[in-house]
């Protein structure tokens, strides 16, 4: 029998089909680990997959991601899926979709943008194209960052 690299989880969320090598970035987008989450978080990279060759998986125990939270992940892993697990059973499975607006997820690469100064505002982007290549426009300076991944906070 094939040995499982990570054990199935009893309760929590599993983010599957993350492009290989991006598991840690996914965690960063979800602001994990954070202080109030003390459960086990596991990230596996380069897992062989029949459909896509290789993939990363992230498992967060005892935390059910709500769609608003997980949709941010679509920025770097548009084809990822989120499975909500209760008592070892998948009770919910959803594909990700990018929200219309991103607040505090991506920073504006324009050094003269007001969102990079000491004003009491968060970087805010309108999503102008949800299909790859994803296009964002800064709400303030209206510039479109070329490399979105590099600007993720």
């Amino acid at each position: 029998m094939k040995e499982l690299k990570i054990q199935p989880i009893k309760n929590g969320s599993v983010i599957d089909h993350i492009p290989p090598g991006k598991a840690l970035k996914v965690l960063r987008i979800l602001s994990l680990p954070k202080k109030d989450i003390t459960s086990i978080i596991s990230a596996v990279m380069n897992v062989p997959s029949e459909t896509v060759g290789k993939k990363d998986i992230v498992k967060i125990e005892d935390k059910e991601l709500d769609p608003d939270e997980s949709d941010k992940v679509a920025l770097i892993a548009p084809h990822a899926t989120v499975n909500i697990i209760r008592d070892y059973e998948v009770i919910e499975k959803h594909a990700l979709s990018i929200p219309n607006e991103l607040v505090n997820i991506v920073r504006c690469p324009n050094p003269s943008c007001i969102s990079n100064s000491n004003e009491p505002i968060s970087p805010r982007f309108k999503v102008i194209s949800k299909r790859p290549p994803i296009k964002l426009r800064c709400y303030y300076c209206e510039r479109e960052p070329a490399d979105i991944e590099a600007q993720i906070i």
Binding site: S112, C113, I114, N118, E119, P120, Y140, C141
Partner: peptide
């Protein structure tokens, strides 16, 4: 910062015209 300046001046006037070197400052 601009946010505070604008909050204060908007209490003094009926309309604000702003020019600032930072891009997006008027939106803010």
């Amino acid at each position: 910062n601009i946010a505070d300046t604008v909050r204060v001046v908007s209490g003094y006037s009926d309309l604000i015209v702003i020019r600032h070197p930072y891009e997006g400052s008027a939106r803010l």
